[in-house]
Design a protein around this nucleic acid. Structure first.
Lengths: 183, 183
DNA sequence: ATCGTACTTGTACATCCGTACAAGAAGATC
DNA sequence: GATCTTCTTGTACGGATGTACAAGTACGAT
Protein backbone atom coordinates (compact mmCIF):
# COMPACT_ATOMS: atom_id res chain seq x y z
CA UNK A 1 0.00 0.00 0.00
CA UNK A 2 1.88 3.01 1.30
CA UNK A 3 4.84 3.85 3.47
CA UNK A 4 7.91 6.01 2.96
CA UNK A 5 10.00 4.73 0.12
CA UNK A 6 13.40 6.16 -0.70
CA UNK A 7 13.69 4.84 -4.24
CA UNK A 8 17.10 3.92 -5.59
CA UNK A 9 18.51 5.21 -8.85
CA UNK A 10 17.18 3.23 -11.77
CA UNK A 11 19.20 0.70 -13.69
CA UNK A 12 17.03 -2.11 -15.03
CA UNK A 13 19.84 -3.96 -16.80
CA UNK A 14 21.97 -4.02 -13.68
CA UNK A 15 19.04 -5.26 -11.63
CA UNK A 16 18.33 -8.04 -14.04
CA UNK A 17 21.95 -9.11 -13.93
CA UNK A 18 22.14 -8.81 -10.16
CA UNK A 19 19.10 -11.05 -9.80
CA UNK A 20 20.51 -13.61 -12.21
CA UNK A 21 23.81 -13.65 -10.33
CA UNK A 22 22.06 -13.94 -6.98
CA UNK A 23 19.89 -16.74 -8.32
CA UNK A 24 22.99 -18.56 -9.46
CA UNK A 25 24.54 -18.26 -6.03
CA UNK A 26 21.42 -19.41 -4.23
CA UNK A 27 21.15 -22.40 -6.55
CA UNK A 28 24.75 -23.31 -5.80
CA UNK A 29 24.12 -23.09 -2.08
CA UNK A 30 20.63 -24.48 -1.66
CA UNK A 31 19.92 -26.33 -4.87
CA UNK A 32 17.30 -25.65 -7.49
CA UNK A 33 14.53 -27.14 -5.37
CA UNK A 34 15.17 -24.85 -2.45
CA UNK A 35 15.64 -21.67 -4.41
CA UNK A 36 13.03 -19.06 -3.55
CA UNK A 37 12.16 -15.55 -4.64
CA UNK A 38 12.91 -14.26 -1.18
CA UNK A 39 16.31 -15.86 -0.90
CA UNK A 40 17.36 -14.49 -4.27
CA UNK A 41 16.03 -11.03 -3.48
CA UNK A 42 17.83 -10.94 -0.15
CA UNK A 43 21.04 -12.10 -1.79
CA UNK A 44 20.78 -9.40 -4.41
CA UNK A 45 19.89 -6.77 -1.82
CA UNK A 46 16.65 -6.00 -3.60
CA UNK A 47 13.03 -6.02 -2.51
CA UNK A 48 10.91 -9.09 -3.13
CA UNK A 49 8.83 -7.36 -5.77
CA UNK A 50 11.85 -6.84 -7.98
CA UNK A 51 12.13 -10.57 -8.62
CA UNK A 52 8.63 -10.96 -9.99
CA UNK A 53 8.90 -7.75 -11.94
CA UNK A 54 11.88 -8.98 -13.94
CA UNK A 55 11.08 -12.68 -13.89
CA UNK A 56 7.35 -13.45 -13.97
CA UNK A 57 7.63 -16.89 -12.41
CA UNK A 58 10.05 -18.71 -10.17
CA UNK A 59 10.99 -21.01 -13.01
CA UNK A 60 12.04 -18.01 -15.06
CA UNK A 61 14.19 -16.78 -12.21
CA UNK A 62 15.88 -20.15 -11.81
CA UNK A 63 16.41 -20.48 -15.53
CA UNK A 64 18.04 -17.05 -15.54
CA UNK A 65 20.40 -18.16 -12.79
CA UNK A 66 21.36 -21.28 -14.67
CA UNK A 67 21.78 -19.40 -17.92
CA UNK A 68 24.00 -16.93 -16.16
CA UNK A 69 26.20 -19.79 -14.99
CA UNK A 70 26.31 -21.19 -18.49
CA UNK A 71 27.42 -17.84 -19.88
CA UNK A 72 30.22 -17.71 -17.34
CA UNK A 73 31.33 -21.19 -18.30
CA UNK A 74 31.37 -20.42 -22.00
CA UNK A 75 33.57 -17.44 -21.34
CA UNK A 76 35.95 -19.67 -19.41
CA UNK A 77 35.74 -22.18 -22.19
CA UNK A 78 37.48 -19.84 -24.58
CA UNK A 79 40.36 -19.39 -22.17
CA UNK A 80 40.53 -23.18 -21.83
CA UNK A 81 40.76 -23.55 -25.54
CA UNK A 82 43.58 -21.08 -25.84
CA UNK A 83 45.61 -22.80 -23.16
CA UNK A 84 45.02 -26.16 -24.77
CA UNK A 85 46.22 -24.89 -28.13
CA UNK A 86 49.52 -23.78 -26.71
CA UNK A 87 50.07 -26.76 -24.46
CA UNK A 88 52.88 -29.19 -25.22
CA UNK A 89 50.97 -32.12 -23.69
CA UNK A 90 47.24 -31.94 -24.10
CA UNK A 91 46.38 -34.68 -21.61
CA UNK A 92 48.34 -32.96 -18.89
CA UNK A 93 46.94 -29.59 -19.82
CA UNK A 94 43.38 -30.89 -19.65
CA UNK A 95 44.02 -32.41 -16.26
CA UNK A 96 45.41 -29.12 -15.05
CA UNK A 97 42.34 -27.27 -16.30
CA UNK A 98 40.00 -29.70 -14.56
CA UNK A 99 41.96 -29.23 -11.38
CA UNK A 100 41.51 -25.50 -11.58
CA UNK A 101 37.84 -25.91 -12.39
CA UNK A 102 37.43 -28.00 -9.26
CA UNK A 103 38.96 -25.30 -7.10
CA UNK A 104 35.61 -23.50 -6.98
CA UNK A 105 33.26 -26.24 -5.87
CA UNK A 106 30.17 -24.07 -5.85
CA UNK A 107 30.58 -23.46 -9.56
CA UNK A 108 30.87 -27.19 -10.14
CA UNK A 109 27.78 -27.83 -8.05
CA UNK A 110 25.71 -25.62 -10.32
CA UNK A 111 26.74 -27.71 -13.29
CA UNK A 112 25.31 -30.84 -11.75
CA UNK A 113 22.31 -29.00 -10.41
CA UNK A 114 21.56 -28.05 -13.99
CA UNK A 115 21.98 -31.60 -15.20
CA UNK A 116 19.70 -33.04 -12.57
CA UNK A 117 17.12 -30.32 -13.10
CA UNK A 118 17.24 -30.87 -16.87
CA UNK A 119 16.74 -34.58 -16.39
CA UNK A 120 13.40 -33.80 -14.76
CA UNK A 121 12.36 -30.64 -16.58
CA UNK A 122 12.56 -30.73 -20.36
CA UNK A 123 12.43 -26.95 -20.55
CA UNK A 124 15.96 -26.84 -19.16
CA UNK A 125 17.27 -29.46 -21.52
CA UNK A 126 18.58 -27.11 -24.23
CA UNK A 127 20.55 -25.27 -21.58
CA UNK A 128 22.08 -28.47 -20.24
CA UNK A 129 22.87 -29.77 -23.67
CA UNK A 130 24.64 -26.54 -24.53
CA UNK A 131 26.74 -27.10 -21.43
CA UNK A 132 27.49 -30.70 -22.33
CA UNK A 133 28.31 -29.88 -25.92
CA UNK A 134 30.72 -27.14 -24.99
CA UNK A 135 33.81 -29.18 -25.87
CA UNK A 136 37.01 -27.24 -26.53
CA UNK A 137 37.59 -26.73 -30.26
CA UNK A 138 41.22 -27.64 -29.94
CA UNK A 139 40.29 -30.98 -28.47
CA UNK A 140 37.88 -31.66 -31.30
CA UNK A 141 40.48 -30.64 -33.87
CA UNK A 142 43.08 -32.93 -32.35
CA UNK A 143 41.20 -36.16 -31.64
CA UNK A 144 37.99 -35.73 -33.59
CA UNK A 145 34.47 -34.96 -32.35
CA UNK A 146 33.65 -38.44 -31.12
CA UNK A 147 36.74 -39.04 -29.04
CA UNK A 148 36.42 -35.48 -27.77
CA UNK A 149 33.00 -36.34 -26.36
CA UNK A 150 34.37 -39.54 -24.87
CA UNK A 151 37.03 -37.56 -23.09
CA UNK A 152 34.51 -35.02 -21.85
CA UNK A 153 32.40 -37.85 -20.47
CA UNK A 154 35.47 -39.13 -18.67
CA UNK A 155 36.16 -35.68 -17.26
CA UNK A 156 32.59 -35.37 -16.02
CA UNK A 157 32.92 -38.73 -14.30
CA UNK A 158 36.15 -37.74 -12.60
CA UNK A 159 34.72 -34.38 -11.60
CA UNK A 160 31.72 -36.13 -10.11
CA UNK A 161 33.94 -38.39 -8.05
CA UNK A 162 35.88 -35.45 -6.71
CA UNK A 163 32.74 -33.46 -6.03
CA UNK A 164 31.02 -36.21 -4.11
CA UNK A 165 33.99 -37.43 -2.13
CA UNK A 166 35.20 -33.92 -1.46
CA UNK A 167 38.70 -35.08 -2.19
CA UNK A 168 41.20 -33.76 -4.66
CA UNK A 169 41.47 -35.01 -8.19
CA UNK A 170 43.83 -37.89 -8.88
CA UNK A 171 45.71 -36.05 -11.58
CA UNK A 172 48.02 -38.86 -12.62
CA UNK A 173 45.22 -41.31 -13.20
CA UNK A 174 43.16 -38.83 -15.15
CA UNK A 175 46.04 -37.91 -17.41
CA UNK A 176 46.76 -41.56 -18.11
CA UNK A 177 43.10 -42.27 -18.87
CA UNK A 178 42.88 -39.32 -21.26
CA UNK A 179 45.92 -40.63 -23.09
CA UNK A 180 44.34 -44.03 -23.48
CA UNK A 181 41.16 -42.55 -24.92
CA UNK A 182 43.09 -40.26 -27.26
CA UNK A 183 44.92 -43.00 -29.07
CA UNK B 1 -7.80 -33.91 19.08
CA UNK B 2 -10.72 -36.21 18.40
CA UNK B 3 -12.58 -37.77 15.50
CA UNK B 4 -13.39 -41.36 14.63
CA UNK B 5 -10.27 -43.29 13.73
CA UNK B 6 -10.39 -46.78 12.28
CA UNK B 7 -6.85 -47.81 13.02
CA UNK B 8 -5.08 -50.15 10.65
CA UNK B 9 -3.35 -53.36 11.67
CA UNK B 10 0.06 -52.63 13.06
CA UNK B 11 3.28 -53.37 11.23
CA UNK B 12 6.01 -50.87 12.10
CA UNK B 13 8.69 -52.48 9.93
CA UNK B 14 6.45 -52.45 6.89
CA UNK B 15 5.55 -48.82 7.50
CA UNK B 16 9.15 -47.79 7.78
CA UNK B 17 9.90 -49.56 4.53
CA UNK B 18 6.82 -48.13 2.80
CA UNK B 19 7.85 -44.63 3.81
CA UNK B 20 11.41 -45.16 2.60
CA UNK B 21 10.14 -46.48 -0.72
CA UNK B 22 7.70 -43.61 -1.09
CA UNK B 23 10.43 -41.13 -0.23
CA UNK B 24 12.63 -42.67 -2.92
CA UNK B 25 9.88 -42.28 -5.48
CA UNK B 26 9.10 -38.70 -4.55
CA UNK B 27 12.78 -37.83 -4.75
CA UNK B 28 12.97 -39.35 -8.21
CA UNK B 29 9.96 -37.35 -9.33
CA UNK B 30 10.37 -34.03 -7.62
CA UNK B 31 13.98 -33.92 -6.52
CA UNK B 32 15.43 -33.77 -3.04
CA UNK B 33 14.66 -30.11 -2.66
CA UNK B 34 10.97 -30.52 -3.37
CA UNK B 35 10.43 -33.59 -1.27
CA UNK B 36 7.96 -32.99 1.54
CA UNK B 37 6.48 -34.96 4.40
CA UNK B 38 3.04 -34.68 2.89
CA UNK B 39 4.03 -35.86 -0.56
CA UNK B 40 5.76 -38.90 0.88
CA UNK B 41 2.87 -39.70 3.21
CA UNK B 42 0.35 -39.43 0.38
CA UNK B 43 2.50 -41.64 -1.81
CA UNK B 44 2.76 -44.25 0.91
CA UNK B 45 -0.94 -44.01 1.68
CA UNK B 46 -0.21 -43.12 5.28
CA UNK B 47 -1.20 -40.18 7.45
CA UNK B 48 1.15 -37.25 7.80
CA UNK B 49 1.96 -38.08 11.40
CA UNK B 50 3.45 -41.41 10.42
CA UNK B 51 6.34 -39.68 8.68
CA UNK B 52 7.47 -37.74 11.69
CA UNK B 53 6.93 -40.69 13.96
CA UNK B 54 9.38 -42.87 12.07
CA UNK B 55 11.69 -40.13 10.82
CA UNK B 56 12.06 -37.24 13.25
CA UNK B 57 13.11 -34.69 10.66
CA UNK B 58 12.68 -34.23 6.94
CA UNK B 59 16.37 -34.81 6.41
CA UNK B 60 16.03 -38.21 8.04
CA UNK B 61 13.16 -39.08 5.74
CA UNK B 62 15.11 -38.04 2.66
CA UNK B 63 18.19 -39.92 3.80
CA UNK B 64 16.04 -43.02 4.27
CA UNK B 65 14.75 -42.68 0.72
CA UNK B 66 18.26 -42.35 -0.65
CA UNK B 67 19.54 -45.24 1.43
CA UNK B 68 16.69 -47.36 0.17
CA UNK B 69 17.73 -46.59 -3.40
CA UNK B 70 21.31 -47.47 -2.55
CA UNK B 71 20.22 -50.82 -1.15
CA UNK B 72 18.32 -51.56 -4.34
CA UNK B 73 21.36 -50.71 -6.41
CA UNK B 74 23.65 -52.92 -4.40
CA UNK B 75 21.30 -55.80 -4.94
CA UNK B 76 21.36 -55.16 -8.67
CA UNK B 77 25.09 -54.86 -8.45
CA UNK B 78 25.45 -58.52 -7.57
CA UNK B 79 23.44 -59.52 -10.62
CA UNK B 80 25.64 -57.27 -12.70
CA UNK B 81 28.69 -58.94 -11.39
CA UNK B 82 27.43 -62.38 -12.19
CA UNK B 83 26.61 -61.46 -15.74
CA UNK B 84 30.00 -59.85 -16.18
CA UNK B 85 31.77 -62.95 -14.94
CA UNK B 86 30.07 -65.13 -17.55
CA UNK B 87 30.34 -62.67 -20.41
CA UNK B 88 32.63 -63.47 -23.33
CA UNK B 89 33.32 -59.77 -24.00
CA UNK B 90 33.37 -57.60 -20.92
CA UNK B 91 33.26 -54.26 -22.72
CA UNK B 92 30.16 -55.26 -24.59
CA UNK B 93 28.58 -56.77 -21.51
CA UNK B 94 29.19 -53.57 -19.54
CA UNK B 95 27.65 -51.49 -22.29
CA UNK B 96 24.63 -53.76 -22.32
CA UNK B 97 24.24 -53.41 -18.56
CA UNK B 98 24.42 -49.64 -18.77
CA UNK B 99 21.79 -49.69 -21.45
CA UNK B 100 19.48 -51.69 -19.24
CA UNK B 101 20.21 -49.41 -16.32
CA UNK B 102 19.21 -46.43 -18.43
CA UNK B 103 15.87 -48.01 -19.29
CA UNK B 104 14.46 -46.83 -15.97
CA UNK B 105 15.30 -43.15 -15.99
CA UNK B 106 13.74 -42.40 -12.65
CA UNK B 107 16.17 -44.76 -10.97
CA UNK B 108 19.04 -43.03 -12.71
CA UNK B 109 17.77 -39.66 -11.64
CA UNK B 110 17.95 -40.67 -8.01
CA UNK B 111 21.59 -41.51 -8.42
CA UNK B 112 22.42 -38.00 -9.52
CA UNK B 113 20.06 -36.49 -6.99
CA UNK B 114 22.12 -38.23 -4.36
CA UNK B 115 25.38 -36.99 -5.82
CA UNK B 116 24.23 -33.40 -5.98
CA UNK B 117 22.75 -33.57 -2.49
CA UNK B 118 25.95 -35.10 -1.14
CA UNK B 119 27.98 -32.36 -2.75
CA UNK B 120 26.06 -29.87 -0.64
CA UNK B 121 25.37 -31.86 2.50
CA UNK B 122 28.31 -33.69 4.02
CA UNK B 123 25.99 -35.93 6.01
CA UNK B 124 25.02 -37.68 2.78
CA UNK B 125 28.57 -38.11 1.63
CA UNK B 126 29.14 -41.63 2.99
CA UNK B 127 26.03 -42.77 1.18
CA UNK B 128 27.15 -41.26 -2.10
CA UNK B 129 30.64 -42.63 -1.75
CA UNK B 130 29.25 -46.10 -1.16
CA UNK B 131 27.37 -45.68 -4.40
CA UNK B 132 30.44 -44.49 -6.28
CA UNK B 133 32.64 -47.22 -4.86
CA UNK B 134 30.25 -49.97 -5.80
CA UNK B 135 32.35 -51.23 -8.68
CA UNK B 136 31.71 -54.77 -9.88
CA UNK B 137 34.21 -57.23 -8.38
CA UNK B 138 34.71 -58.93 -11.70
CA UNK B 139 35.74 -55.66 -13.27
CA UNK B 140 38.22 -55.01 -10.48
CA UNK B 141 39.60 -58.55 -10.78
CA UNK B 142 40.05 -58.18 -14.53
CA UNK B 143 41.55 -54.73 -14.96
CA UNK B 144 42.60 -53.79 -11.45
CA UNK B 145 41.02 -51.34 -9.00
CA UNK B 146 42.35 -48.18 -10.59
CA UNK B 147 41.31 -48.88 -14.13
CA UNK B 148 37.99 -50.14 -12.80
CA UNK B 149 37.36 -46.74 -11.28
CA UNK B 150 38.39 -45.04 -14.49
CA UNK B 151 35.87 -47.12 -16.38
CA UNK B 152 33.16 -46.35 -13.83
CA UNK B 153 33.89 -42.67 -14.22
CA UNK B 154 33.49 -43.07 -17.95
CA UNK B 155 30.21 -44.87 -17.48
CA UNK B 156 28.92 -42.11 -15.21
CA UNK B 157 29.84 -39.57 -17.84
CA UNK B 158 28.04 -41.45 -20.57
CA UNK B 159 25.03 -42.00 -18.36
CA UNK B 160 24.93 -38.31 -17.61
CA UNK B 161 24.95 -37.46 -21.29
CA UNK B 162 22.09 -39.83 -21.97
CA UNK B 163 20.15 -38.60 -18.97
CA UNK B 164 20.44 -34.95 -19.86
CA UNK B 165 19.87 -35.23 -23.58
CA UNK B 166 17.12 -37.77 -23.14
CA UNK B 167 18.59 -39.72 -26.00
CA UNK B 168 19.67 -43.33 -26.12
CA UNK B 169 23.15 -44.44 -25.30
CA UNK B 170 25.67 -44.65 -28.13
CA UNK B 171 26.57 -48.24 -27.44
CA UNK B 172 29.29 -48.61 -30.04
CA UNK B 173 31.22 -45.60 -28.83
CA UNK B 174 30.97 -46.63 -25.21
CA UNK B 175 32.20 -50.14 -25.91
CA UNK B 176 35.14 -48.80 -27.85
CA UNK B 177 36.01 -46.35 -25.10
CA UNK B 178 35.87 -49.05 -22.45
CA UNK B 179 38.24 -51.17 -24.52
CA UNK B 180 40.70 -48.31 -24.76
CA UNK B 181 40.69 -47.79 -21.02
CA UNK B 182 41.01 -51.49 -20.31
CA UNK B 183 44.25 -51.98 -22.16
C1' DA C 1 -8.44 -58.89 32.98
C1' DT C 2 -5.53 -55.03 33.59
C1' DC C 3 -1.99 -52.27 32.56
C1' DG C 4 1.78 -50.06 30.20
C1' DT C 5 4.12 -49.31 26.16
C1' DA C 6 4.33 -48.65 21.41
C1' DC C 7 1.94 -47.28 17.69
C1' DT C 8 -1.76 -44.58 15.05
C1' DT C 9 -4.14 -40.60 13.61
C1' DG C 10 -6.14 -35.96 13.18
C1' DT C 11 -5.35 -31.55 13.99
C1' DA C 12 -2.95 -27.18 15.38
C1' DC C 13 0.39 -23.59 14.64
C1' DA C 14 3.86 -20.54 13.35
C1' DT C 15 6.36 -19.73 9.33
C1' DC C 16 7.40 -19.51 4.67
C1' DC C 17 5.92 -19.74 -0.08
C1' DG C 18 4.55 -17.82 -5.02
C1' DT C 19 2.25 -14.37 -6.85
C1' DA C 20 -0.69 -10.19 -7.22
C1' DC C 21 -1.18 -5.50 -6.78
C1' DA C 22 -1.73 -0.64 -5.39
C1' DA C 23 0.73 3.48 -4.57
C1' DG C 24 4.17 6.18 -5.77
C1' DA C 25 8.66 8.05 -7.99
C1' DA C 26 11.92 8.62 -12.17
C1' DG C 27 12.61 9.92 -16.41
C1' DA C 28 11.29 10.46 -21.28
C1' DT C 29 8.12 13.03 -24.67
C1' DC C 30 5.85 16.72 -25.92
C1' DG D 1 5.47 21.89 -16.91
C1' DA D 2 2.02 18.30 -18.05
C1' DT D 3 1.55 13.62 -19.23
C1' DC D 4 2.60 8.98 -19.95
C1' DT D 5 5.39 5.06 -19.55
C1' DT D 6 8.53 2.42 -16.91
C1' DC D 7 10.37 1.14 -12.82
C1' DT D 8 10.35 0.71 -7.55
C1' DT D 9 8.63 -0.83 -3.27
C1' DG D 10 5.70 -2.47 0.56
C1' DT D 11 2.18 -5.17 1.59
C1' DA D 12 -1.55 -8.67 1.13
C1' DC D 13 -3.36 -13.30 0.61
C1' DG D 14 -4.44 -18.01 0.02
C1' DG D 15 -2.05 -22.00 0.41
C1' DA D 16 1.82 -25.28 1.61
C1' DT D 17 5.38 -26.49 4.87
C1' DG D 18 7.92 -28.66 9.08
C1' DT D 19 6.99 -30.01 13.32
C1' DA D 20 4.44 -30.68 17.75
C1' DC D 21 1.07 -32.93 20.22
C1' DA D 22 -3.19 -34.73 22.38
C1' DA D 23 -6.34 -38.30 22.04
C1' DG D 24 -7.06 -42.86 21.19
C1' DT D 25 -6.10 -47.85 19.95
C1' DA D 26 -3.56 -52.41 19.55
C1' DC D 27 -1.04 -55.69 21.86
C1' DG D 28 2.40 -58.02 24.80
C1' DA D 29 3.39 -58.57 29.73
C1' DT D 30 1.55 -59.53 34.04
Amino acid sequence: MTGRRPQRTRDPEARRAALATAAMEVIAENGVGRTTHRAVAARAGLPLGATTYYFPTLDDLIAAGLRHALDALQTDSQAWDERLRNAPDMAEALTQLVQEYLADRSQVRIEYELFVAAARDTALRPLAEAWLNDTPDTLVATVGPEVARDICALLDGFILQALVSGTALDAGRLTAAIRKLSS
